[in-house]
């Protein structure tokens, strides 16, 4: 059985301007110990998906429907008390902005300790010991000294390490990392990605990586789910997604990303692929394919019938009537 199985997830928000369908019929699985990346541009629903899994969506104005099966239990059916036991213990989360995600008036040791004391009932001394252990694990030098420091005394990279230490303190089965390196500089990002790869082999948690950065996806993920307008448009292994993308949106996205080393091959400047137009409004029900308004190979069928997510080859799911054609085009 998969560790996490999301089925037909719908997360909608009631706003003054109407209902926003942020996530619309999303299904995917994460196996134990696996790294799955959820990729898409801003507003595609990837962060809302992670918040929905942890049930951190405020209801109202939000509303979650569908199934989120975690180790065989549907999280959407659990009472709040049970859900609180899962959050931070079985499923933990790393956020994008390490400064605002840490409490500025508590020492980092206290903040790591809080989680383990809550979930594992450790004493204050034991919790501090665990804090030092965790800080050492995430590669913070002199952890005995650092546990007594406050977030503002740490650099951005160090804070993100503390966030990771907090997330891993209770040995979670699933770690949700929402843009974990977006706010960091590239050399610090390299450190954190390195750390996450290293920890993954040592801790064995599954990682759900949410990002817009295809470079980070290629470095970290085993499987990739590409989202557009709240829907899954393609899912495959990382090698398949980057080597043999099927959906026109995935292809457009990959073409739009400049690759380091491009100047070494060609002469002069090359044009990047553009995806014309803009993301459709999520306030109306979209009839037909959500990508139809920007798709280079759109036909009338696409405008009338929303494509089902189908396995084009084993393990490679695409939501496009013209998947094969897209490859040929």
């Amino acid at each position: 059985m998969a560790l996490l199985e999301v089925e037909n997830l719908q997360t909608h928000f009631a706003t003054l301007d109407g209902v926003v369908r942020a996530v619309e019929g999303l299904s995917f699985k994460i196996d134990a110990g696996e790294t799955v990346a959820i990729v898409g541009e801003s507003g595609c629903g990837k962060s809302v998906t992670s918040m929905s899994i942890l049930r951190l969506i405020q209801e109202p104005p939000g509303k979650i429907a569908g199934k989120i099966n975690f180790r065989g239990r549907n999280l959407l059916d659990l009472p709040d008390v049970e859900m609180r036991k899962i959050r931070g213990k079985d499923i933990s989360m790393i956020f994008q902005e390490p400064m605002t995600s840490l409490n500025p008036v508590l020492t980092v040791g206290r903040q790591i300790g809080e989680t383990v004391r809550l979930h594992e009932g450790l004493t204050a001394q034991e919790a501090e010991k665990r804090g030092i252990e965790m800080l050492g694990l995430v590669g913070i030098p002199a952890p005995e000294r650092r546990v007594k420091e406050y977030p503002h005394q740490l650099s951005g990279g160090m804070r993100q390490r503390v966030m990771i230490a907090m997330a891993l303190a209770c040995n979670p089965k699933l770690l949700i990392a929402d843009e974990p390196t977006t706010a960091l500089d590239v050399t610090i990002q390299a450190q954190i990605l390195d750390l996450m790869r290293d920890l993954k082999t040592r801790v064995g948690a599954a990682i759900m990586l949410i990002t817009h950065d295809l470079g980070v996806v290629a470095e970290m993920a085993e499987r990739v789910v590409v989202m557009y307008a709240g829907r899954k448009v393609e899912e495959a292994t990382a090698v398949q997604i980057f080597g043999n993308p099927q959906h026109p949106y995935t292809r457009g996205l990959l073409g739009a990303v400049p690759k380091l080393g491009s100047s070494l091959q060609g002469h002069g400047r090359t044009k990047l692929t553009e995806i014309q137009g803009q993301v459709p409004s999520l306030r109306q029900r979209i009839v037909g394919c959500a990508f139809a308004s920007r798709c280079p190979i759109v036909t009338d069928v696409c405008r009338q019938v929303a494509p089902a997510v189908e396995a084009k080859t084993p393990g490679h799911y695409v939501a496009c009537h013209y998947a094969e054609r897209a490859v040929a085009a």
């Binding site: 990279g157 050399t187 990605l193 950065d213 380091l260």
Partner: peptide
């Protein structure tokens, strides 16, 4: 060199020698 090697490349098959800089600016 470190800066260039730190940029993630959108190609999961790429094998690169990465220079990880230690510490902060």
């Amino acid at each position: 060199k470190a800066l260039l090697s730190a940029v993630p490349v959108p190609d999961p098959t790429a094998k690169r020698q990465r220079i990880i800089l230690h510490g902060d600016v």
